[in-house]
């Protein structure tokens, strides 16, 4: 799959692995791809997120808020637990979870539909944004970011 990735997309994936590891996550999730796009210099993809008010810090805050709200729905307050401030070291190199695999698959489909020979960072952004369920759409909705409009803008930039 990755052999079809352009340099910028390969960098996003590489950074996503680092994001997941730095956060102590045993898996690479779709939100780590999005964090990688927001936190890097990936041209149009990073610009679109910034333009929607989502720099790396804002996105992280939105993700943390979604985590807290979802715990609260189960009657759990994160503040009830004394957790280490620094994330734990990852158990091993994080592996791709279903959410990130689906995002990569969608990105590939978008590239094929656009007759692009390579998958770029913008394709990846569309792949992540087009998820209907899961942490990313919930976090973006919570941050009042219009996910569909953002995905549509990204698709238009692809031509």
């Amino acid at each position: 799959m990755f052999e079809r990735f352009a340099k910028d997309a390969a960098k996003v994936v590489h950074d996503a692995v680092e994001e997941a590891a730095a956060l102590g996550s045993p898996t690479i999730e779709a939100e780590h791809l999005l964090l990688a796009i927001a936190g890097g210099r990936h041209g149009g993809a990073t610009f679109l997120l910034e333009d929607a008010g989502l720099d790396a810090d804002a996105l992280m805050a939105a993700l943390e808020r979604e985590h807290e709200l979802s715990l609260a729905a189960a009657g759990v307050a994160i503040g009830d637990f004394e957790l280490p401030a620094t994330p734990p070291r990852p158990r091993r190199t994080p592996s791709f979870a279903t959410s990130s695999k689906r995002a990569l698959e969608r990105a590939l489909k978008v590239a094929v539909a656009n007759h692009s020979r390579r998958v770029g960072a913008l394709h990846l952004l569309v792949g992540v944004l087009r998820a209907e369920f899961g942490t990313v759409p919930r976090a973006l909705a919570g941050a009042e970011v219009d996910r569909i409009a953002l995905a549509t803008r990204a698709e238009r930039m692809l031509g």
């Binding site: 102590g24 715990l71 759990v76 734990p88 899961g134």
Partner: peptide, 30 residues
């Protein structure tokens, strides 16, 4: 507490609880 009326909220709570359980396990084992 009531179960969330929207299944999406209920399932997101499961994801959040798993993540919290993972973090608690890491901290507890340490």
């Amino acid at each position: 507490p009531d179960l969330p009326a929207d299944p999406a909220d209920g399932l997101a709570a499961v994801v959040a609880l798993r993540r919290l359980a993972d973090r608690l396990e890491d901290a507890g084992v340490e």
